[in-house]
Measured scan of single mutants.
Amino acid sequence: ITIHVNGVTYHFDNPEEAEKFAQKMAKTYQLKMEIHNGEFHME
């Protein structure tokens, strides 16, 4: 699972971890999250 946050790329093997991380980042930084081709993009 690949997550892009403001141009920084994070890779996770565990989908649950990826989702937790994505939600935490979105909440902490008030980010808008989109999913493209199974990759999370946040800005």
Score class of each variant (00 low, 15 high):
I1P: 03
I1S: 04
I1L: 06
I1K: 05
I1V: 08
T2R: 13
T2Q: 07
T2C: 15
T2F: 12
T2A: 08
T2K: 10
I3R: 00
I3D: 01
I3W: 02
I3P: 00
I3V: 14
I3Y: 04
I3L: 05
H4Q: 04
H4P: 01
H4A: 04
V5L: 06
V5S: 01
V5C: 12
V5D: 01
N6E: 10
N6L: 15
N6A: 11
G7F: 13
G7E: 05
G7Q: 06
G7Y: 06
G7L: 08
V8T: 09
V8N: 10
V8K: 13
T9Y: 05
T9H: 08
T9V: 10
T9C: 15
T9G: 10
T9L: 09
T9N: 06
Y10F: 11
Y10N: 01
Y10A: 01
Y10V: 02
H11V: 08
H11C: 15
H11W: 11
F12M: 01
F12T: 00
D13N: 10
D13L: 11
D13F: 09
D13A: 09
D13E: 09
N14G: 05
N14C: 14
P15A: 10
P15W: 14
E16G: 07
E16Q: 09
E16V: 11
E16T: 09
E17S: 10
E17N: 07
E17W: 05
E17D: 09
E17M: 09
E17K: 11
E17V: 07
A18R: 02
A18W: 03
A18C: 13
A18H: 01
A18Q: 01
E19R: 12
E19N: 12
E19Q: 10
E19I: 13
E19L: 14
E19D: 08
E19C: 15
E19F: 14
K20Y: 08
F21T: 01
F21Q: 00
F21W: 10
F21I: 01
F21N: 00
A22M: 09
A22E: 02
A22G: 01
A22L: 06
A22H: 02
A22Y: 07
Q23Y: 09
K24P: 00
K24Q: 13
K24R: 09
K24S: 10
K24C: 15
M25E: 02
M25T: 02
M25F: 04
M25P: 01
A26K: 07
A26E: 13
A26V: 06
A26Y: 12
A26R: 06
A26F: 09
A26M: 13
A26L: 12
A26N: 07
K27A: 14
K27Q: 14
K27T: 11
T28S: 05
T28Q: 14
T28I: 14
T28W: 15
T28A: 10
T28H: 14
T28E: 15
T28G: 04
Y29F: 06
Y29C: 09
Y29H: 14
Q30V: 02
Q30S: 05
Q30G: 14
Q30N: 12
Q30D: 12
Q30T: 03
Q30P: 14
L31N: 07
L31C: 15
L31K: 02
L31S: 05
L31A: 04
L31I: 09
L31R: 00
L31F: 08
K32C: 15
K32W: 14
K32V: 14
M33F: 12
M33I: 14
M33G: 04
M33T: 05
M33W: 13
E34S: 09
E34V: 15
E34K: 06
E34W: 13
E34D: 04
I35H: 04
I35Q: 06
I35W: 09
I35K: 03
H36I: 15
H36L: 11
H36S: 05
H36E: 06
N37D: 09
N37V: 05
N37F: 09
N37E: 06
N37S: 04
N37M: 06
G38W: 03
G38I: 04
G38P: 02
G38N: 06
G38R: 02
E39D: 07
E39Q: 08
E39S: 06
E39W: 05
E39F: 03
E39A: 05
F40S: 03
F40K: 04
F40Y: 13
F40H: 04
F40L: 14
F40R: 02
F40T: 04
H41I: 09
H41A: 03
H41V: 09
H41D: 03
M42H: 03
M42Q: 04
E43C: 14
E43G: 10
E43I: 15
E43W: 15
E43A: 11
E43D: 07
E43S: 13
